[in-house]
């Protein structure tokens, strides 16, 4: 650049030879932003991970799109400036090297920089916090006493049990049967109760936008509402030993009627096994060493369907307005 001392002292007025450079760069950023932002919103957004299979996933997709839209003018400005500097301000081949004018502070530039960076960071902070609250915890594990809960009257509880090295699932409103299959009804609020029988695992149902740590003796609750049928990939996202990488399986979101018939069929088929399982509980208490002979008794009993969700007993007292349909899911939302 070739700004003179006089140019900088007067704040860069009409006689500033750099003005045309800044005007051009500003124009490039504006035009670029006008082109890129609608593309991000109307074209890219629907392809953003993790999809729209649940409200939490759709929320993740929305958040990722908005944050990308917030970042894109900055990226365009940086790229435009670099490109412009490399092309326009390149030192001509063979020209003598001349020291440039001294660089002095510019209050306007400094204030603008501070204002813009603060606005971007605060914007991301406020947006992120809001988005975490509004969609009932955004699919994240909220611990045993969730602060943000759905207002739906019907929520299906599904217990997720991590153990070295496999996920199993219990359905307390269907007799507490246990299975390796994660099957969920479409168009239904789900409360995942995630726990572990040994070390710390992390339940990550990618397409559902749900991720919750599985800690032994902790009932980590995460909510989401299914809104599309399809396949779900479940992975462990916490390094948990030699077979951590193999600790994945697949689940399915199916129609309500398909789910109901699957659940009732599985409940019946698994009845002999269910009798031998410990009574359904939100957590189980492993001994320090299972090889020592310790079994895993219930430590927090599952309340009856009458008290569940009404704040009468157990950790679910912290789920205001939640009432579980005991059998079937024909009820409305």
């Amino acid at each position: 650049m070739t700004a003179t001392d006089g140019d900088r002292r007067d704040g860069g007025r009409a006689d500033d030879p750099n003005r045309r450079h800044w005007r051009f760069l500003l124009l490039v950023v504006l035009v670029g932003t006008i082109i890129v932002e609608p593309l991000l919103w109307f074209v890219i957004r629907v392809h953003m991970p993790p999809g729209r299979q649940t409200t939490a996933a759709q929320g993740d997709q929305f958040d990722a799109t908005v944050l990308t839209m917030m970042a894109s003018p900055v990226v365009i400005a940086v790229l435009a400036y670099f490109t412009y500097a490399m092309v326009v301000w390149r030192h001509p081949k063979g020209a003598p090297l001349v020291d440039g004018p001294p660089i002095r502070s510019n209050l306007k530039v400094q204030a603008s920089w501070l204002f813009m960076t603060s606005a971007i960071v605060m914007g991301a902070f406020v947006f992120g916090t809001y988005e975490l609250i509004v969609p009932a915890g955004a699919g994240g594990g909220e611990g045993p006493s969730p602060i943000w809960t759905p207002t739906s009257k019907t929520i299906l509880p599904v217990q997720v049990i991590g153990q070295q090295w496999q996920w199993t699932y219990r359905y307390p409103t269907y007799g507490g049967f246990e299975t390796t299959q994660l099957v969920l009804p479409d168009n239904t609020w789900i409360a995942f109760h995630v726990t572990s029988l040994d070390v710390i695992h992390s339940f990550w149902a990618y397409q559902l936008g749900v991720k919750a740590d599985a800690n032994p003796q902790v009932d980590d609750v995460a909510f989401t509402k299914t809104q599309q049928t399809g396949k779900v990939t479940v992975r462990c996202d916490e390094l948990c030993g030699i077979w951590h990488g193999a600790m994945y399986n697949y689940g399915y979101v199916v129609s309500r009627s398909s789910f109901n018939s699957w659940a009732l069929r599985t409940e019946k088929r698994q009845a002999p096994l269910t009798k031998l399982l410990p009574p359904f509980s939100w957590t189980y208490s492993p001994s320090a060493n299972g090889a020592g002979g310790g079994y895993y008794p219930s430590s927090i009993p599952f309340p009856s369907s009458e008290s569940y969700g009404k704040g009468a007993s157990g950790p679910e007292g912290n789920l205001p307005g939640v009432k579980v349909s005991h059998k079937g899911l024909s009820g409305g939302q």
């Binding site: 153990q163 070295q164 070390v199 030993g241 077979w243 492993p286 060493n289 299972g290 090889a291 020592g292």
Partner: peptide
Amino acid sequence: RWQCFIPCGAGWLDGNGGPMQTI
């Protein structure tokens, strides 16, 4: 992969160390 699901690694954390985590 195949494995044993009994926590039979006696003396190890949760019974799942030692022989349970060694090919």
